[in-house]
Design a binder for these strands. Structure first.
Lengths: 234, 234
DNA sequence: ACGGATCCATACCTGGATCCTG
DNA sequence: CAGGATCCAGGTATGGATCCGT
């Protein structure tokens, strides 16, 4: 039972809506994807792959968007009972050697984030097989959001291009972070040092902060000329 | 039971001598390498890996020589009852884009062939588990052999550097051939065309002709001032 | 709470070679 | 017979993310 790729974005969103409310167990059974692993806490990518399968994403680990012809990237995101993300979101690996001379507009994270289909997934503790899929959100960065991402990215790009990648910690960046992305802390990749030579360093990835994705999933309430609406007091 | 790497070439050769006369079944059992596959005709590299294991070769698919610190390349070679090779011998992949501006002395096949430990393996049909390992030969190209290899290599290098790789068939080369090296004929890699642009083509490898390896495994009988020795007629 | 560290699946690549028609 | 085609194992890289100690 493997669905074909959706023909257009409307069909993709339609399908994503049909997933809302279904549990992981139901979905896996319907897709003949085997039982929900008992040790789901060690199968970190399992839900993401399950939803890819359910939506007919071009499977595999290719660098293209999940729905290449549609230009849509799929991201599942674990949320609490209120729909607030429990984790930051991995965006893409940091291409350390290519951070010089690339503009934000042409950067890998910008391309990944150009259009994202967010699928929230209930991540309340101890409910593995019963965890439910939430309602999807298609998102494209607003000018404000794009500017915030660009500001952070340009800060990182300058540091890295100048060989100061070791100064970067997860504290940096208002909406976008750089954190390790590797099998373990002994992994190594190449970067440039302040003198322009090649040196080894830990592979890193771009991540979106929780506060940023929280705002995406919870659009602000509409404001009126009279100010924010308050619930009637009884 | 996995042997450590040999300390020097003498130890390597010693160990290789102890393999002579043993069957694949015996060797596999001694190494705890599982049973000899029944469908050995589809496990093309199995014997090569078995012997690597037996001799403590730095396992895996790294581009280094099998015995890196010794500068020795290990090659098993299937032979008939007389010790004559039944197949040509794969040497290395053709690095199509790097054939220009490299001298034979610095080329990949030259490095691979600088010193080879040949292990003949009985390849008479229908004797799978009973096939026996033969006596090893350590070989370094003689000046004559090196010149023959160089001649062929330079012919190939010129063709490829000028974008004429498609003209190369296995008919070409007196001792060294170029033939496909790929999972199948639809595989593609890059090469340069006659105008210097990049085009896709089938990945290829260097192979030693049977007649060449036959001469390595069967050194010529000593000649005397009276001519070749003939068996006494009774 | 979150910054640093890590876990799993799978595609891809390389190195081991021999297969198999015409 | 041998030129063209192919087969398998295992390591590495990439993409899916969440884990977990302080």
């Amino acid at each position: 039972v493997i669905p074909r790729p959706p023909a257009d974005q409307a069909e993709l969103l339609e399908r994503a809506e049909t997933l809302a409310g279904r549990s992981l167990g139901e979905l896996a059974a319907a897709l003949d994807a085997g039982p929900v692993p008992a040790d789901l806490h060690r199968k970190k990518g399992w839900i993401g792959r399950l939803v890819e399968l359910a939506l007919g994403a071009s499977a595999g680990n290719r660098p293209q968007p999940d729905f290449e012809s549609l230009g849509v990237e799929l991201k599942t995101i674990p949320v609490d009972a209120r729909g607030v993300p429990r984790e930051s979101t991995f965006v893409t690996t940091v291409a350390l050697l290519e951070m010089g001379g690339v503009r934000w507009e042409d950067s890998a994270p910008r391309k990944k984030l150009a259009r994202v289909l967010w699928i929230p997934v209930d991540a309340r503790p101890s409910r593995d097989g019963q965890r439910r899929i939430g309602r999807p959100t298609v998102w494209t960065p607003s000018p404000t959001e794009d500017a915030a991402l660009r500001d952070d990215w340009e800060d990182f790009a300058e540091l890295i291009a100048n060989g100061w990648v070791e100064l970067i910690t997860a504290h940096r960046g208002r909406v976008l972070q750089i954190r390790p992305k590797a099998a373990n802390a002994r992994e190594r990749t190449w970067t440039t040092d302040p003198e322009g030579g090649l040196v080894e360093t830990l592979p890193r990835g771009f991540y979106l902060r929780r506060s940023f994705t929280a705002a995406i999933l919870r659009p602000p309430p509409p404001t009126t000329p009279l100010g924010p609406v308050r619930p009637p007091s009884r």
